[in-house]
């Protein structure tokens, strides 16, 4: 029998408490190496779509905010297109990066993204998924990055038909994936790593 000659994925390790040094050096006071921290600005004045602000805090199993988490987001543009070479359905807005990266505030743990509301993106079978933002969370004490999604509270109709939200067996956990609207274009998405109201994390 022939061998498949497959390699194994490199094992993940925690990002540790000093992830800022490598990922957001300007944020942690290491100036002059990079002009700007990667993922700081997702939009410019020409970006199409509704401007939104997404903020949140990550909490541990004791209810304490993580003050050393790093959050990355990835999302489609206002028309539902990804600014990625893999995007085959059209050309995404050239004034939108789709990628954001923020560290939690050292005192409060809060992070904030200035972005646009994403358009709907199709599921592999052609059904439309409700507008969502994909998040990836790393920190000291997290051995492998946690993947989740944020959906919008003002998209109830689309959320009710979303192919991912509807496949969650424990429907009482769906609200953990839906942000809270806190103002005009302002959303709050708190993440609970463990315990009551534990956020749904995905194996993708």
């Amino acid at each position: 029998m022939q061998s498949l000659y497959r390699l194994k994925e490199s094992p993940s390790q925690t990002a540790g408490p000093y992830v800022h040094i490598g990922c957001v050096p300007n944020f942690c006071g290491i100036g002059g190496v990079y002009e700007e921290d990667l993922g700081t600005s997702m939009v410019n004045e020409k970006t199409k779509g509704e401007r939104i602000k997404v903020s949140g805090t990550v909490y541990d199993g004791t209810g304490t905010p993580l003050k050393d988490a790093l959050i990355e987001i990835w999302q489609a543009d206002a028309d539902g297109l990804y600014p990625s070479p893999e995007e085959t359905r059209g050309t995404a807005d050239p004034n939108f990066t789709g990628f954001g990266r923020k560290a939690g505030d050292y005192q409060t743990g809060e992070w904030v993204f200035e972005t646009v509301k994403p358009g709907a993106v199709p599921f592999p079978d052609g059904r439309m998924m409700a507008p969502h933002i994909t998040l990836w969370i790393v920190a000291r004490g997290i051995n492998i990055g946690l993947q989740t999604r944020m959906y919008f509270p003002d998209e109830a109709e689309a959320n009710a038909k979303d192919p991912i939200l509807t496949r969650i067996e424990h429907q009482n956990r769906v609200p953990t994936l839906i942000a809270e609207k806190t103002g005009d274009g302002a959303y709050r998405f708190d993440i609970y790593l463990q315990g009551e109201n534990e956020t749904v994390f995905f194996d993708i």
Partner: peptide, 10 residues
């Protein structure tokens, strides 16, 4: 305190 206690959703 930083590990999810529920299974990941595939």
């Amino acid at each position: 305190a930083r590990s999810p206690s529920r299974a990941l959703l595939t």
